[in-house]
Design a protein around this nucleic acid. Structure first.
Lengths: 418, 418
DNA sequence: GATATTTTCTCGACTGTCGAGAAAAACAAT
DNA sequence: ATTGTTTTTCTCGACAGTCGAGAAAATATC
């Protein structure tokens, strides 16, 4: 879909693209990343397996592992079950205590904290409820800071051990600088999370859109099974708000993006969205939009702040039992989603769609509208309906995405300086 | 906008990503490409300038230029105006006769042929008219084959000299295999252009969407002036049909894509599009769509095959003189464009928009609708209106894009095998 | 204990980049 | 004419990294 083109060197002077590094050394860096990556994916591996999986020559593997051992990022498991005859293989593994990653999932009604070691193993987790009515940035930041301290205390680690703090929220995010630009709960009040890392000297911070993490995790799962579709994949998260993420492989790495799908203009109608605009996809397909339609509330009514899942289940049940208005509401929601998806696929190319989030339990009611919306575009009429699958347990996906991105950031940092 | 992530080595065994090459040698390849690229951009350059512009050490430049000279891709200008005192600089330059690129722009009413040398200089060009009524693939292919032979004859080159044949058309394209999947003129009749290269033993073929070439040329112009916006740029081509291309820098290279914008679903209305669907952007904003609205023809009327520009000028003039229906038609067109653009920006991030094509002379009539459509999305309300500029002479841009991509492909091939 | 087997590690060759300084080639001054 | 001066190009040795082959290590089997 994307086409490569010009070299186009237009750099002022004396510096290369951004890997402005001494030429050949970044080769080594890539190889180190490859070794670390495959170790994360597959667990403990022998020298030989490492060589096979990375494609590196055996000698190179030695050089790289020696390097990595020296920095402390990997260690060798001395004991090993003697598998057959011949010299027993020694297994390399990521050193669990080398670094720790903290993930914080900021959702509308709760905050989920997790601590993982350098192998990606979950060490500790807890959640705190969030008062939906206190929609202010200040208290939120204090709350998180306190919980981080609590996480540290329970782990009995030193503050230096925290290497990466990965935050996520629904909404629009400037991930480089850790600033939340717009969120369903806080609206246009910008939140600068970067202060949270100040208490931990080695800790870097990243802020991600929630569905970006979902699609990251999905892509990771698929690519670890060598099942990554060539054009990438889409994750669509259905709930009170609508999120969408796209992942594609690029130069052997997973690249993800979380466009502003829920508030992409769908149709210039009079359905009022939480964001203040009319005609957003979310205004039709978010829980509050479905609710509003099902109960024939005027579509420009200010949306409910929160719709309990039980409420949605009731509407779904009445739809399944034949209630026309409820059926219509879900169909309209599906239509908006299908139309929106058709636009995404027109723009980004054809790819499979994974539907996650609490709303995907209603997919039986949405599917008709989705297919209708999809087939209204030339793209779908040429390429056929995209493959759509339901994936459960979004929460776990978010966590996996957190860990994946966090460890990845750490790996890049470790191999960088040397 | 796009975020880098996992190493994720999931390759079956023994082979690296796709540059499955012997490690360090692709460093050299990159450096060769850098030298070739900067020579194409800036013309003749001395050893010292080469070193400065590429960031390579002087010794490396020597190594690379020696290599490239050996293959014949570059040559040294012996004579040089003695600039000052000191040893005179010898200038390297791409060897004009090293390879030749042929571009063919397939438009609805004409075919434009051009031959360029390895420096990108235009050698020869001519156009042939295309019978709009003969909308069949066979005659078209024969016509092109004959014209290519004519181009070869006039150039007095041998058939081996043609190194790259770059075709372009509006529509949907599978560029890798040179197949046109859908085009405004031929509809769903697929055309396989790959046979055209058979007569030229060294010739490779590429097929691009026309607006992709436009945005490629724009990106090249901007990046050569170091003015490339960080998020990339969008080109929107207005005419009988609507095209859109996106370009962004990635790892120092221009990456382009031409999504299926004209037939992206805009609103589920009853405006019939050429593609057979209802509600495409083109059905509102293409010339035939504007015409239909202005003359109050029923919107589900089968679109005109071709609308002369003079006809559009008449409508525009009457709109400028106050005709309400004509004004409405342009406003609706602008609205569809603005809404579509807002979706593109929501998905791909904020970037400047360049408007090209014959329709951009009517932009004064479109602008109101465009701005209204844009501002209906949260993205634009947060980031403000995107920078919109008008760029004239689309034809030249297409040609530049052709040459850029063709030479680039040749450069990659040259540096590849060794 | 010898042998076979499997895995890891070491060594030398090769490729490529870099910095520094030598060589080249012009002009200017004596 | 010769000697410097200046500017640019080219060469050389050092260094970093990868690779293939084969030596070395460590175990099971005979």
């Amino acid at each position: 879909m994307w086409m490569k083109a010009t070299p186009s060197i237009d750099l002022p002077s004396g510096q290369r693209s951004l890997a402005a590094k001494p030429g050949t050394e970044l080769l080594r860096r890539q190889n180190m990343l490859a070794v670390l990556g495959v170790l994360r994916l597959k667990g403990a591996l022998s020298h030989t397996e490492l060589s096979e999986l990375t494609g590196l020559a055996s000698a190179t593997v030695t050089a790289v592992t020696v390097d990595l051992e020296k920095t402390g990022a990997i260690e060798r498991q001395e004991q090993s079950a003697p598998s057959g005859r011949g010299r027993p293989r020694v297994l390399f593994e990521r050193a669990a205590g080398f670094a720790y990653a903290v993930s914080v999932q900021i959702s509308s009604d709760a905050l989920h904290y997790a601590l993982s070691d350098y192998r990606g193993k979950l060490i500790d987790r807890f959640s705190t409820v969030r008062d939906v009515n206190v929609a202010r940035a200040g208290p939120l930041l204090q709350d998180i800071a306190a919980s981080l301290a609590r996480l540290l205390g329970r782990s009995k680690l030193s503050p230096e051990a925290f290497s990466q703090l990965s935050l996520s929220s629904k909404g629009i995010v400037e991930s480089e600088i850790g600033r939340l630009v717009w969120s369903p709960v806080l609206g246009r009040e910008e939140v600068d999370f970067s202060v949270l890392a100040d208490a931990y000297p080695n800790c870097h911070l990243s802020l991600s859109n929630e569905t970006l993490l979902v699609v990251q995790a999905l892509a990771r799962r698929q690519s670890s099974r060598s099942e990554m579709p060539p054009n990438g994949l889409v994750a669509l998260s259905l709930g009170h708000s609508i999120g969408l993420g796209i992942a594609r492989m690029e130069a052997g790495e997973i690249m993800t993006t979380a466009p502003n799908f829920g508030h992409m203009l769908n149709a210039p109608d009079n359905r009022l969205c939480r964001c203040g605009a009319y005609g957003c996809i979310e205004a039709s397909a978010g829980f509050y939009g479905i609710l509003r339609l099902a109960f024939q509330v005027p579509p420009n009514t200010i949306p409910a702040k929160f719709v309990p899942l039980a409420e949605m289940e009731k509407i779904a049940q009445s739809a399944r039992q034949g209630n026309r208005m409820a059926q219509y509401a879900f169909r309209q929601a599906g239509l908006a989603l299908g139309q929106g998806l058709s636009r995404v696929l027109s723009l980004a190319g054809d790819m499979p769609v994974a539907i996650t989030g609490p709303g995907n339990r209603f997919y039986d009611l949405l599917t008709g509208g989705v297919e209708e919306g999809l087939s209204q575009s030339l793209h779908v009429r040429l390429n056929g309906q995209p493959a759509i699958s339901l994936v459960q347990d979004e929460q776990t996906l978010v966590f996996e995405g957190h860990v994946d991105r966090a460890l990845n950031a750490i790996d890049h940092r470790v191999t960088q300086v040397r």
